[in-house]
Amino acid sequence: MDDRPDWNPFRALSRRVLTNDEPLVLSDDVRALLLRTAHEVAIRDAEAALSTKEGALALMREATRRISEGSNRLTDALHVMWQHQRAGDYDTARKLMRDVLAEEVVPYYRQLAQGQLDDMADEP
């Protein structure tokens, strides 16, 4: 997919700040990165969060959580879905993707889950 978000710069910043305890410097580039990432993970009011360092850190934590949990949720569901597909159980496979869609907020992960669900539309 060519609309895959590039979260590597955000992950690197998050690791430096949240894991290595480096100070968060809210430069124009960092603000732009945080705003872009917030948009990509469906966080509203990101601009307001960036008005304070505490808000920016909370925004970073929430974006990190959404990326990580969404990735884990989708990966786990895909693994089980493929097992059910191989066994010919498409109803359960579809349910797994519907469950992901019911919980997931990150548009990219939702798009991937919907694509899997659409791919099974013609299956029994």
Rank of each mutant, 00 (worst) to 15 (best):
L112D: 08
R11V: 06
L117C: 03
Q83K: 11
K53Q: 13
R65L: 10
R94P: 01
P107N: 07
V106C: 10
A102G: 15
W82I: 00
R65G: 01
D29G: 12
Y90N: 02
L59W: 03
T75A: 15
A46H: 05
V30W: 04
L112S: 08
N8M: 14
T19S: 13
D122E: 13
A48C: 10
L59N: 01
L34S: 00
S27H: 11
D118Y: 06
A113I: 03
A46W: 03
L101I: 08
A48H: 12
L50A: 00
L59R: 05
D28H: 12
M60R: 07
N72D: 14
R73Y: 06
A46L: 00
V41Q: 01
Y90P: 00
A48L: 13
R65H: 09
F10D: 09
Q114K: 13
A42V: 08
P5K: 09
E40C: 06
N20F: 15
D28I: 11
D29T: 11
G88Q: 11
D76T: 14
L18Q: 07
E104H: 05
A58C: 00
E47T: 12
A32T: 07
L18P: 10
L74V: 11
L57I: 08
V30Y: 05
A102I: 06
E22V: 03
L59F: 04
K53P: 02
L50E: 00
Q111E: 13
E22K: 14
V25Y: 11
D2V: 07
M97F: 01
A32P: 13
R94Y: 02
E40P: 12
H79N: 10
D45S: 12
A32I: 03
I43Q: 14
M120V: 04
R36K: 14
V106S: 03
H84P: 02
E62Y: 01
A12M: 04
S71E: 13
V105Q: 15
L117A: 02
P9A: 02
D45A: 13
P107Y: 06
Q111W: 13
L59P: 04
V41D: 06
A42R: 12
L13S: 05
I67F: 08
L101A: 08
A56L: 04
L59S: 01
E104W: 03
R86W: 04
R98F: 02
R36I: 00
L13G: 05
T64S: 10
A77R: 02
S51K: 14
E22T: 03
M97R: 05
A87H: 02
A93M: 01
E62L: 13
R15D: 08
